[in-house]
Simulated assay, not measured.
Amino acid sequence: METVRAHGASAAPERIDAAPAQDGPDVWFVGAGPGDPELITVKGQRLVREADVVIYAGSLVPRAIVAEAREDAEVYDSAPMNLDETHALIREAVAAGKSVVRVHTGDPALYGAVREQARLLDADGITWQVVPGVTASFAGAAAAGLSFTVPEKMQTLIITRMEGRTPVPEGERLRELAQHGTSLAVYLSAGDPEGLQSELEAAGLAGDVRVVVAYRVGWPEETLAYTTLSELAVTARENGFTRQTVFLILPGEDDEDHVSKLYDKNFAHGYRA
């Protein structure tokens, strides 16, 4: 039996008058993955199929994801809505005893807006839970057949973004993070590929560091461009990569054969002498 953590249940003395309690929380935040309808989790797909109300951002989530909803389900595109409007829609549905699924692109924990939505739900005593999803950087690495980690050479991945309309906290500037020399997945930065390349070069990364520019991973128009740091900006511009582009910076990738210890016949562990 699944134990459901009831977020916000004790935070609101004036809980809305909902219809009879149902199994699970009132609202599910579901990660839809990067775009491929088959990259949503089995659980996420089941919840979309079962929900009375499905809300998704049509600018980022393919319609095919929510096409799995029941014929009688209410499906709303939140792209033109603001936070108050989406919350009012959820609150009204829950008050009517309807189950709600809020579909987010990728994984809800990464560059999503769950925090502010959850704060409003908590204030109204509306319970919620999250189903994780596949994020674009992992889907991009999979499509490219590459790994962020390389045995004995690279063991760290930093996920970050360039500063734009959304400020980046002090100490998290891309130039400073890149100085660690780790693998990087840079989101939300396709609007300024020249600035991205400049920051990485200023951090001391060599021009021949391998880069994969992954555009709209999982969508029909998915494009992967294999390049180097010195050609990053030109590659992005020439291909017209804009929104929904993630840059995979791979200092650990080279032509050498770096072998894991996991299947080394001389490496003993708890399951092999």
Rank of each mutant, 00 (worst) to 15 (best):
E172S: 13
Y187N: 07
F138R: 05
A113C: 08
T227K: 06
T105Q: 15
H269S: 15
A236M: 12
H269K: 15
A268Q: 15
T86W: 07
A190W: 11
E222I: 00
E68Q: 04
L89Y: 08
H269A: 13
E14H: 14
A268T: 13
P167T: 07
A21P: 08
E85D: 08
G204F: 01
H87D: 01
A12D: 10
T127S: 04
W28K: 01
E68K: 08
E68T: 08
H258Q: 05
L229R: 04
E238M: 05
L157F: 07
L224V: 00
M162N: 10
G106V: 13
T149H: 03
Y76W: 12
G24P: 04
G31D: 03
D192M: 13
P62Q: 12
L205N: 03
L89P: 06
A73E: 05
A67H: 11
P251D: 00
L224E: 00
I16P: 10
N239E: 09
D52P: 01
R216A: 02
N266V: 04
G191P: 06
V217D: 03
L146W: 00
I90C: 01
Y187W: 08
T166V: 14
A69T: 09
L60K: 14
R216D: 03
G204C: 02
M1K: 13
E116G: 00
D208A: 15
D208V: 14
A18I: 11
D192Y: 12
T149I: 03
R272V: 14
T242E: 11
G31K: 01
V211G: 05
V4H: 06
Q179K: 00
P220Y: 07
R91Q: 06
T245D: 11
P108Y: 04
T182Q: 12
Q117P: 01
G24Q: 04
A95H: 14
G58Q: 10
D36V: 07
G24M: 03
V54P: 08
E221I: 00
L200D: 06
A144D: 04
A19W: 11
F241M: 15
G171E: 13
D72H: 06
V134F: 07
G112C: 13
T105Y: 11
R91W: 00
R237W: 03
P132Q: 05
R15H: 14
V150I: 00
R102M: 10
Q155A: 12
